[in-house]
Design a protein around this nucleic acid. Structure first.
Lengths: 344, 344
DNA sequence: GTGAAAGCGCTAACAT
DNA sequence: ATGTTAGCGCTTTCAC
């Protein structure tokens, strides 16, 4: 059973497909087409179970009404939330969304950017894992509407929506220091060139410095993104938490690190916060549920996603002034819970 | 700056676009096109930054190489995992994927199915929230390749990939009974007509019956899908856990329910499993990390997603024998942890 | 070896 | 008030 096209309806009725197109796009009245004719067209469309071919329409109109969203991993709760909000907000504006996951792999990301463009996405939202700006500069040169989210490139003028990672990390460390902790370890994830990681690290260093604590590279650690996270966490935590390092607090730079770290700490039968205090970046739901609840930096992901869509769609719809770029920096909120020994 | 098309390359070289198309699709040798000409075409394509328009190609070829995935909520970890695996597996077979979320809303699901078809998806993977089979029957009538996942319709012959929910729930309850629990509450989510919910409930009833325990409707509860979950959980837990009901164990029928329930139980300062034992369906990562770790039913989501893609792509690629339908029922695994008082 | 032409389904401009 | 035509970018058939 072949799909019904405009032509099939036109033939069945002995009219032209242009007329059918107009009627079905609710432009019948505007074009002064006979009410009765319109009725017949609509009826026949229903009878033949007509579904417009949006691909053909997109080809004709030069717009797909599709937004490509390129993120590291749709199964990471932080990005899943952002993705979901983007989906909803884009829907309100008449766009649908295609998500793809890069696994923090720059080559894969390049391929996926290309794929989205070949599939004629009208614009892109990207949480980029690129170490350099080549792809981004290409997009800009080609006048492709896009918005960076979560990560950006300070040296390039683009649209972006991020949080103030430096300040957020600074606040975390200050909070810990105020509670009396001095030996504060930091566990980050590679690739380390990403702006969120770099700025969080800088916030950590600056907070230490401003409180007269020396930066100690031995208690700043890194784990590569990927599956083996749990395995590497175990020896690392042993190393940090026992002599000679004996850190008092650990600041995890994202939610996956914190989850892996918590699992290890539980296995080691250490108490939080008595034996070690814990803070994480990214406030995922379950942090509230742990024993004790985990202090974490909450990013306003809804607002971020919403803004990203708003900026993108605006740029898509005004092809003329594509050189006005928007930069949005949101404040993150430190959700203080009991894992660092302070009870709200 | 306009996008480069085949025609632009053809003109720049004074050849026909047919030739360019052949060369760029690596069919130059096969068609015996001059090596030197091929080289020039490829060079010019690179110089003009040519990107094939996959939409136009799809229109011509009648295949988009796209799979539509329709699920309740991409930000639910269970579906996010499935989605991610589908993305990877489809990618291996040369397909890309579009995810959309229905929020368990049947009308929204109908609209999204239609949208995916209008966007010319070659096939669909659906975790359906429909109370009836109308949409499914339409899809079948129109010969659209699709695979149901997680939920299915027993009265309709379709492809589907699910777990044996009855058996899994039966095992959960049997496990609890063997540990000595008698008053076992069940908390389910609406819509209740979904096969997983129905079969899990049936498994619960059958296990009780087989062990000579009377089914008590007062300790079988339901919460509607949506935002207000936490609010409704609180009074419900009070009701179940204190007199006169005083249940000894609670079986949550999915991960969101269990998370909300755990939060309330923590707030009530009850101990797990001493005051109440807990089991959940869906084994999400964090269950391992709770104090105590939560016993849960693990679905083999990787295998399920992989099978769904395999079945779908096979059907897409063999338009002739579309009436051979595959039904896959996977066994779920009960991950026994300490939340029900049994220590492995 | 290469080119010309047709056509996928649609819509906009132009005719009548 | 309705129809005709052209063309979006691509691939395929057939002709030279």
């Amino acid at each position: 059973m072949k799909k019904t096209s405009l032509n099939d309806i036109a033939k069945a009725l002995g009219v032209s497909k242009a007329l059918v197109s107009l009627v079905l796009n609710n432009r019948g009245d505007e074009m002064g087409i006979n009410k009765e004719t319109q009725r017949k067209v609509i009826k026949m469309a229903a009878k033949l179970n007509y579904k417009p071919n949006l691909v053909a329409r997109g080809l004709r109109l030069g717009a797909s009404k599709n937004i490509g969203v390129i993120i590291p991993d749709i199964s990471n709760p932080f990005f899943a939330r952002i993705a979901r909000t983007i989906e909803d907000e884009a829907g309100k504006l008449g766009y649908h969304v295609t998500f793809v996951s890069t696994d923090e792999n720059p080559q894969k990301e390049s391929r996926l950017i290309r794929l989205m463009l070949e599939r004629q996405s009208d614009g892109l939202i990207i949480a980029s894992s690129q170490p350099n700006t080549a792809d981004i500069l290409n997009l800009r040169r080609d006048n492709v509407p896009f918005v960076l989210i979560d990560r950006y490139f300070p040296q390039v003028k683009t649209n972006y929506v991020v949080v103030d990672n430096h300040k957020a990390a600074y606040n975390v460390v200050t909070h810990l220091i105020n509670l009396g902790y001095r030996k504060i370890a930091l566990v980050k994830i590679s690739p380390e060139y990403l702006t969120p990681i770099r700025f969080r690290l800088a916030g950590y260093r600056d907070a230490l410095r401003d409180h007269g604590i020396r930066y100690d590279k031995h208690i700043v650690r890194e784990i590569p993104f990927g599956e083996g996270l749990a395995n590497q966490m175990e020896p690392m935590m042993h190393d940090l938490l026992f002599r000679p390092l004996s850190v008092e607090a650990v600041f995890f730079l994202n939610n996956s690190l914190a989850l892996a770290g918590l699992e290890v700490i539980n296995r080691m039968n250490l108490r939080i916060p008595q034996d070690v205090a814990i803070v994480s970046f990214d406030d995922i739901d379950v942090f509230r549920l742990f024993h004790p609840p985990v202090t974490a930096v909450a990013q306003p992901y809804r607002e971020m996603a919403k803004e990203a869509v708003r900026i993108l769609v605006k740029e898509i719809q005004s092809p003329h002034k594509r050189n006005e770029k928007s930069q949005m920096v949101f404040a993150a909120k430190l959700e203080i819970r009991r894992s660092c020994g302070f009870y709200k």
